[in-house]
Amino acid sequence: MTSLDDGTDVRSRVTIRCQGNASIGVTFCDRFNFDADSVHYPVELWAPGLTARVNEVVA
C-alpha cells in the first residue's frame, strides 16, 4: 500500500498489489465529493495484458 503524507498538495491514493504477482494491482485515487452523503473516486486496475480505469466510482 502506498501513502503520500509529506505535507504537500498531492492528492492521496491507495495502491494494493497482489502478494503473489506484483504486476497485478488496483489503485484508488483522486477522491472528491459532490455531497455530504457520498465519496467519488477513480479506480485504476492493471495486470499483464490489462490496463483499465473507471473514472467515477461512488461509495
Score class of each variant (00 low, 15 high):
residue 1 M to Y: 10
residue 1 M to P: 05
residue 3 S to F: 09
residue 3 S to V: 15
residue 3 S to N: 11
residue 3 S to G: 07
residue 3 S to H: 08
residue 4 L to Y: 07
residue 7 G to D: 04
residue 8 T to E: 06
residue 10 V to G: 08
residue 10 V to M: 11
residue 11 R to F: 07
residue 12 S to Q: 14
residue 12 S to R: 14
residue 12 S to M: 12
residue 12 S to K: 13
residue 14 V to T: 14
residue 14 V to N: 02
residue 14 V to R: 03
residue 15 T to L: 13
residue 16 I to L: 06
residue 16 I to P: 00
residue 17 R to A: 14
residue 17 R to T: 12
residue 18 C to K: 13
residue 18 C to E: 08
residue 18 C to I: 02
residue 18 C to W: 12
residue 20 G to D: 10
residue 21 N to F: 11
residue 21 N to G: 00
residue 22 A to N: 10
residue 22 A to P: 08
residue 22 A to W: 04
residue 23 S to I: 07
residue 24 I to D: 02
residue 24 I to V: 15
residue 25 G to Y: 07
residue 27 T to D: 01
residue 28 F to Y: 15
residue 28 F to P: 02
residue 29 C to F: 14
residue 31 R to A: 03
residue 32 F to M: 04
residue 32 F to A: 03
residue 32 F to G: 02
residue 34 F to E: 11
residue 37 D to C: 05
residue 39 V to Q: 05
residue 39 V to R: 06
residue 40 H to L: 00
residue 41 Y to N: 02
residue 42 P to I: 10
residue 44 E to L: 14
residue 45 L to P: 01
residue 45 L to S: 07
residue 46 W to L: 04
residue 47 A to N: 01
residue 50 L to P: 01
residue 50 L to K: 13
residue 50 L to Q: 13
residue 51 T to D: 04
residue 51 T to R: 13
residue 51 T to H: 15
